[in-house]
Amino acid sequence: MGWLVFAFGVWAGGWWLNTWMARLPPTRLTSLAVPVLFGLTLIAIWEGVVRGLEISPVLLPAPSMIALRFAASTAILWEDFVQTVIKGALSGYVLGCGSAFLIAILVDRFDFLRRGLLPVGNFVAALPVIGMAPILVMWFGFDWQSKAAVVVVMVFFPVLVNTVQGLTSATAMQKDLMRTYAAGYWTTLLKLRLPAAMPFVFNGLKIASTLALIGAIVAEFFGSPIRGMGFRISTSVGQLALDLVWAEIVVAAVAGSAFYGAIALIERAVTFWHPSQHH
């Protein structure tokens, strides 16, 4: 009962504090403090409710229990992180985005190809590509190569479509200006069209960054060596070790956010001139 009162108190206190802070003149500090406080409040309520209602750890472990488990099994978590994120997701991401980018430049040279590939690419980008996972696991074996292949297939079309679209974004006026400078195809591409395409490219890269992690983890459900985040999640669920599952989820969430954040930081540095980067 005490824990339930605690949870309710935290909820009311957090709510009041956030309402009060949201009314303050907006600064960098409040725009950071409000969401952080919201998150902390949620965790505290979770802890209080789980303890107060004595929910079985087999259903939902308390945050403190997850933290303990996390600290106790860092070796396993690190091994899984290297297997899934570094070997599977990252190598597939670099390979998939790189090849999509190069092919987009190639496609852009031929109007016929562009008109044919764009609708097909848009169509494929909406398909449940993740279903390719069992086939690719069959072709490339159980180790990280098959996971990287799944990631390549998943990230390819979003990046391709966005890059091709971005390459058309330079205006006729800008292109005419390049022509008056007597700039050839490559100079125009490097100095004008690629920089102008960057906001679109980064949009594709951001979408791809979340897809990459999903692809690498889900592909492990179809077969993997005895390490990896997807493998650990599916086996730990079977053993009802939900605290370890949640620890893996924390790793996945942190890795996913860091990945996305890194892309966003590079975007800010590359496309500093774009209106969406001015705050």
Partner: peptide, 26 residues
């Protein structure tokens, strides 16, 4: 609601960096 805008919106975006499909079995 301004409070919701400031506290919920960042978490809505953060929620998508969690690979939810990985949680499907659980």
């Amino acid at each position: 609601n301004r409070t919701m805008d400031m506290s919920v919106m960042p978490w809505v975006i953060a929620s998508q960096t969690i690979p939810i499909l990985a949680l499907a079995p659980m």
